[in-house]
Amino acid sequence: MNIDSHQHFWKYEPVKHSWIDDEMAVIRKDFMPSDLKKIYQKNNIDGCVAVQADQTLAETDFLLDLATKNDFIKGIVGWVDFRADNIDEVLKHYSQFDKVKGFRHVVQGEADHNFLLRPNFLNGIAKLEQYNFTYDILVFPHQLGAVLEFVQAFPNIKFVIDHIAKPYIKDGYYDGWALLMKEIASHPNVYCKLSGMITEADYKSWTYNQLLPYMNLVLDAFGTDRILFGSDWPVCLVAGNYEKVKKITTDFIAQLTIEEQQAIMGLNAVKFYNL
Rank of each mutant, 00 (worst) to 15 (best):
N2V: 10
D4E: 04
Q7V: 00
F9D: 03
P14D: 12
V15L: 14
D21W: 14
D30H: 09
F31S: 05
M32T: 15
M32N: 11
P33K: 11
P33W: 11
P33Y: 09
S34M: 10
K38A: 11
Y40G: 00
N44K: 13
D54L: 07
D61N: 15
F62A: 11
L64A: 01
K69S: 06
K69W: 00
K74A: 10
G75F: 04
F82G: 03
D85H: 02
Q96V: 12
D98R: 14
F103T: 02
F103V: 03
H105K: 11
V106N: 15
G109K: 06
D112M: 15
N114Q: 12
F115E: 10
I125P: 01
L128H: 04
L128C: 04
T134N: 12
I137C: 02
F140N: 12
A153K: 13
P155V: 13
K158L: 10
F159C: 07
I161S: 07
A165K: 07
K166H: 09
D175L: 14
I184M: 06
P188K: 14
N189E: 07
Y191H: 14
K193N: 05
E200W: 02
D202Y: 01
Q210K: 13
Q210M: 15
L211A: 07
L211S: 08
P213D: 14
Y214N: 10
N216K: 13
L217I: 06
D225N: 14
F229S: 04
G230V: 07
W233A: 05
P234V: 08
I248R: 00
T249V: 14
F252I: 01
A254W: 12
L256K: 05
I258Y: 08
G266N: 02
L267V: 00
L267K: 15
K271H: 14
K271Q: 13
